[in-house]
Structure formats: structure tokens, C-alpha cells
């Protein structure tokens, strides 16, 4: 069984600085999305439960740095990587990422379960998995809290706001994993050292013949929110009640 995990290269969100309300991304180290790491961990667990048969393959698309960034996933247990390198791509929008990832998945050939995080760590738009499913003409299940396989059937728990539903579907399938459903393993020192030696298939964007038909989203502004809260101290519960009354939230 081949388990494909799509992961996105993003800036380390903890290290983004805000200057004059604008995010400064220069020198911010690149990493892989946090929820993507949940997806990788889920992939590793699916394989373990399937008697450790099959391979876990990471796919990603990004600028040249992705060749290094993907080592983090290889260290965490993925067997190999297939990445699309687009030198111009620093900020790929969802529709284009989906096309590149789908191309990488086709290159792998057999993909039985294709895992995504429910959303990327930076943009959290949550579209790419669904878009890839459409391109590959596969069924999809989002917000998955659990994935089990028996033979060629996957049994997936989808967690909605107020319900959980269990669905079954024949492989192959695209599954988007819920954030925080597992604790991604910390790679050991020797796994980190071995990551660079694992197989990496690198696809140059120019070698792909598909159309990406340009951007579909324009960003008008992207600024840190201004906070203009009153910060009025309230010293007693009585005073707080008076405030709630004055603002019309409570009546005596």
C-alpha cells in the first residue's frame, strides 16, 4: 500500500516578525505545516496498523528550499519524497499547488491513500486536498479523526461540528486529517542523519506540461490587526456588573 502525504513548506510561524503591521518573512526558517505533520503521523500509523506494509511518500511543491525542508518529513518517518520545484514559487496559491501536487502524485503512480492536513499552517484555506481529489477524480473525506483500512476499503471517521460520521470507501481516496488528532513523533538524531540519504524524486516545473492558467486570487492587503481595546481596569464584581448593565448585556 502506498500512502502519500502532501505537505506544505511554510515559514515558521513562531518566528514571523511584524514591522509596521506588515509581516517580515525574510530570514524566517522554513518548515512543514503543523497539521501536515499530523497527516504524516496518521500516515505512519495507518502503515503500522497495516502490518508495516507499504511505503509512506511525501509530496510537496515549492521553491528550491523544499529539497532541504522535506528532510524534516523524511526524518520523521516518511520513506521517500516526490517534490515539484518551482523556483518562482514562494507563495503558491491553492489552485496552483493542487495542480503541482496532483502531477507529483501521478508521477508516483500508485497512491492508495492520499493524506492532507485539514488546512495549511499559514493560509489554512483547506482547499488543496479537495482540489487534488477533483483533479485525480477520487472520492474525498475531510476532517478525518480516524482512518482504518481493511484490504482495499478505508473506514474513516469524519468529525463535524456537532456530529461524527463513519464512512467507508474503496481505495484510492483523498483524506484530509483533522488538526491535533495525534502527537507527531520527534525524529531521533540518527533518523535526522539518515533523512538526507532517503530517495527524493525532484520534478522541475519546466518538465511538467500541464497548464496552471495563472493566479485566481489577488491579495489587496495583508496586515497585522490593529487592537484598539479600551483596557479599562475594573476592580470589583459590582463594578463589572455595572459595566455589563451599561453596555446592555444584563439587567438587574
Amino acid at each position: 500500500m502506498n500512502i502519500v502525504v502532501a505537505m506544505k513548506q511554510i515559514p515558521d510561524l513562531q518566528q514571523i516578525r511584524i514591522r509596521n503591521r506588515c509581516p517580515v518573512l525574510d530570514d524566517v526558517p522554513l518548515t512543514l505545516g503543523k497539521i501536515d505533520k499530523n497527516a504524516l503521523e496518521a500516515g505512519l500509523k495507518i502503515r503500522e496498523n497495516a502490518g508495516n506494509k507499504g511505503r509512506v511518500i511525501v509530496v510537496s511543491a515549492g521553491n528550491r528550499d523544499i529539497e532541504e525542508t522535506v528532510k524534516e518529513a523524511l526524518a520523521a518517518g516518511a520513506d521517500e519524497a516526490c517534490i515539484v520545484v518551482d523556483e518562482a514559487a514562494s507563495d503558491l496559491e491553492s489552485s496552483i499547488s493542487a495542480i503541482l501536487l496532483a502531477a507529483a502524485i501521478k508521477r508516483i503512480g500508485v497512491a492508495d491513500i492520499i493524506l492532507f492536513g485539514e488546512g495549511s499552517g499559514d493560509n489554512y484555506s483547506g482547499q488543496v486536498g479537495a482540489r487534488v481529489a477533483e483533479i485525480l477524480d477520487l472520492p474525498q473525506v475531510g476532517y478525518a479523526g480516524n482512518v482504518e483500512t481493511t484490504g482495499r476499503t478505508a473506514r474513516i471517521t469524519r468529525v463535524l461540528e456537532d456530529r461524527e460520521e463513519i464512512v467507508e470507501v474503496e481505495l484510492p481516496v483523498v483524506v484530509c486529517i483533522l488538526a491535533d488528532i495525534n502527537e507527531p513523533r520527534i525524529p531521533s538524531v540518527s533518523q535526522i542523519l539518515k533523512a538526507g540519504k532517503k530517495h527524493k524524486e525532484i520534478i522541475e516545473i519546466d518538465d511538467l506540461t500541464m497548464e496552471t492558467s495563472g493566479r485566481r486570487i489577488e491579495t489587496i492587503s495583508n496586515l497585522a490587526p490593529e487592537t484598539a481595546r479600551k483596557r479599562e481596569p475594573v476592580n470589583t464584581c459590582g463594578a463589572l456588573c455595572a459595566v455589563l448593565e451599561k453596555e446592555g448585556f444584563w439587567a438587574r
Binding site: 532541504e68 524534516e72 526524518a75 520527534i186 525524529p187 538524531v189 535526522i192 533523512a195 538526507g196
Partner: peptide, 17 residues
């Protein structure tokens, strides 16, 4: 190197968590 960064990160993650 990426490996050095990842070892540092693994240590930090273990330390934090």
C-alpha cells in the same frame, strides 16, 4: 546544515513538550 537545524529543533521540541 539542515541536519544541525533539525537536531536543534528535535531537542527544543523535546525540551518544550
Amino acid at each position: 546544515s539542515k541536519e544541525e537545524q533539525l537536531i536543534q529543533k528535535a531537542a527544543k521540541e523535546f525540551a518544550d513538550k
